[in-house]
Amino acid sequence: MSTDEAVIVGAELAAGHDGTTELVVRLRHPGGAENAVVLDEDVGLALMARCGASHVDELAGHSWRRIMEAGDGV
């Protein structure tokens, strides 16, 4: 895992405003600060597929770039 760029450190499921399940991804940035990135169902599923994850816990350790790729692929 590279430490000079933002990395996914966890993910949780949440209820979204539009009535679907959302993916709340926790991202750790260089320096240690963290924030939550909320992905809609389509992007969340695409992120799991792109990371080869079949469980949300398997997203930890992947680069922030996978989120961007997932979003652009939807």
Binding site: V43, M68, A70, D72, V74
Partner: peptide, 8 residues
């Protein structure tokens, strides 16, 4: 820092 813009 701005994935709300650059993802999707």
């Amino acid at each position: 820092w701005n994935l709300h813009i650059f993802a999707g």
